[in-house]
Structure formats: structure tokens, C-alpha cells
Design a protein around this nucleic acid. Structure first.
Lengths: 177, 177
DNA sequence: AAATTAAGTCAGTACTATTGACGTATTTTC
DNA sequence: GAAAATACGTCAATAGTACTGACTTAATTT
């Protein structure tokens, strides 16, 4: 297959659309939306020498103070080795502290410090502002709809990871940790 | 294990919620939703030895056949060097072909081949299925709402990148704002 | 002819992620 | 109490995706 003048490499000049029963419109919108959504905190993180991974760890430690390393790995769906470097940096810079588990002393419960809480809020602020702007003319119904849609986009078996923090709704809280 | 008993490193045991006026609920949902949304094609891509970057290139070349390298860089917001490796692989594997620009022969217009079109569709299929499932009980209004929300999440100055492909909106142009 | 532009390439670096292996402390099991 | 399992940390090696900067080639514009 060295010859490149075959039919196989003939250019297709028509664009894909939703013709094929595929929802390209929303696929593309989701990409753009997420790209810009994450660009907000990225700029703040750069000042700290942190990356997106630090943000995610910081977010979940603030959302679920006291969660263990194993639980964090489960939520982020990354490996221990990937987490190690990031977590170490956050601990060394006093954004996160580890406490020995009270029940099981092998475990390390992760808590944010005041500094870590402040950074988490600073990172979330522009994202929240963006969301608020996007929901500007929307009522409670519309907001609930967006939440329902996003939740439905999550794998069903992983949906337990969401409802962990109360303050939301849906009586599906089954007393975590 | 030096002195870590300062006030600055005292653990905060309460979780952040939407108390601080920050929309953690949607921030978190958006993270989970996008994580799982991209995990679908990731598994297919692995079979080809491709990554997420290949997917994005393939997607936009299929959505906008004939776009130039410069245009693609603008849409993806990455550098030429980052694109180079990925694009080369897609060309070498006959998923994408380059044609000399008719007006300006310095330009390289990018087109999908039949093979590239097929892969793009295969990658989009599970994502589209997920979206359809998430919108299962939803009507046109709800769908339009989601689209409007996602579009509003995109930076205004970059919103031009979206409406490029017609074939979707029938009569609704940009009449109002 | 000179400057600019589009694209490709080379070298070097950083971040995030991976797998595999191993060490240490602690808990559980027998 | 010894052995096995668990939670965590760490070392080494690798990959994918991104970055900056510098340079080349070809084509267009001035």
C-alpha cells in the first residue's frame, strides 16, 4: 500500500451533520463548553505552578473532607502513582493535611487547610460565575433540567460518587463514610 | 514530619457547599459528565493507538472538510507543534488527506477519507447514544435549553467557531441579540 | 527583490498519566 | 503470635499531550 492514489484516500468534501443520526451539535458544544470552563481556573493554577490535576484533588478534598487516599483515587479514576506527586505537592505547600484514620490507622484522611479552602474557592469562583451567566435568564426549572441532564450523562454505576455532598436534593443519600 | 502543628495547617472538617455562593453542584456534575463522555471514544481510540487529540482533529476535519491547518489550530487552541505529530499519524494511516489550497497553494486543506469518516462516526456513536439516553424523556424545548446552556458556557468571542456547520438550525439565525 | 505568510520540522521541556515492583505500617485471619 | 491482607508511599521506566523557540521551504504579497 505505498500507492497513495487509491480510492481509499480520496477526500470526502461533505461535512458530517446530524444526518447520520449522530448528535454532532451537542457533542461539539460539550467540547467547547468544557474547554472554556476549565480554562478559567487554569490561569490561576499557573501562578501556583499547579495543573489541572491539583485542582481536581483540591476540589474533592474540599467537597469531602476526610476522604481517604483510596476513595480519592476511586473518584478521580487515576492510579496511585499519578496522584502521589500531585498530592505531595499540595501537602508540602500546606493546602492539604493528612490525618491518621481514627478507626484504621493505616488510612490517611485528607483535609483542606484554610489555605487549601481559599484556593479551592478561588478556583471555583470564575467557573461558578460562568455558570451563573449561562443560566442568567433561567428559572429553577431550567436549572434543574441542566442538572438532570448532566447527571444523566454520568455512568449510572458511578452516579453514587455525586450525591455524596448533601445540599442538593434527590433522597438518594446513603450515609457515606 | 517536622513541626506541622501550626494554625495554618489545621484541618478544616466541613465540606464546601453552595453556601459560599459558588455553584459546586454543577461544577462537579460537569466534571463527571465530561469524564464519562470522553471515556466512550477513548476505548475505541486505544485500539488504533490513538489518543484524545486524534479524536478532536478527526472530529473537526469531518465537521469542516477543507479547513486549513491554521484554522484547525485556532479551533483546537493548541500549537502547531502539538498538532504536528497527531496530524501526521492520521495522514499516514489514511484517515485524513491534505490537498493543496486552490486559492493559496501554501495552504493545506484537510479532508477526511472514507476511512477517516468511518472512524469519526464510530467515535461519535457512543457519545451520541449517551446524549440521547440523557435526553430520553425530553422534548424539543428541553433539548434546546441544553444547547443554549452549553453555548452560553463558551467564551463569547469564540462562539463563532460553533455555528460553522449549517444543516442544523433551520430558520433560527441570530436575529435578536 | 524583499517581506510576509502557511506549513513543516527539530530540539528541548513540562505535566499528567500509565504499569510494575517494592517497602512499611497496620489490621485481619488463622 | 505468625501469616496474610490492606493502605499508603515510593522508585523506576514509559507514554501522550501539551508547551516554547528556532529554523526551513514554498508561495504570496508588497
Amino acid at each position: 500500500m505505498t500507492d497513495r492514489n487509491h480510492a481509499a484516500v480520496k477526500p470526502i468534501r461533505t461535512a458530517v451533520t446530524d444526518e447520520d443520526g449522530i448528535d454532532f451539535a451537542i457533542i461539539e458544544l460539550f467540547f467547547f463548553a468544557y474547554r472554556d470552563f476549565t480554562s478559567d481556573p487554569d490561569q490561576i493554577l499557573a501562578d501556583y505552578g499547579f495543573g489541572r490535576a491539583h485542582h481536581r484533588v483540591l476540589h474533592f478534598v474540599n467537597r469531602r473532607p476526610g476522604l481517604t487516599v483510596a476513595e480519592l483515587l476511586d473518584v478521580l479514576k487515576i492510579t496511585k502513582q499519578s496522584l502521589a506527586r500531585v498530592l505531595k505537592q499540595l501537602i508540602d505547600t500546606d493546602h492539604i493535611v493528612q490525618l491518621q484514620g481514627p478507626r484504621d490507622r493505616r488510612q490517611r484522611e485528607l483535609y483542606p487547610t484554610a489555605k487549601g479552602r481559599a484556593l479551592a474557592l478561588a478556583l471555583a469562583r470564575p467557573q461558578s460565575r460562568r455558570i451563573r451567566a449561562a443560566l442568567e435568564d433561567s428559572g429553577t426549572t431550567e436549572r434543574a433540567m441542566i442538572e438532570r441532564f448532566l447527571e444523566a450523562m454520568v455512568n449510572p454505576e458511578l452516579r453514587t460518587q455525586i450525591g455524596i455532598v448533601p445540599a442538593k436534593m434527590s433522597g438518594k443519600s446513603h450515609g457515606d463514610h
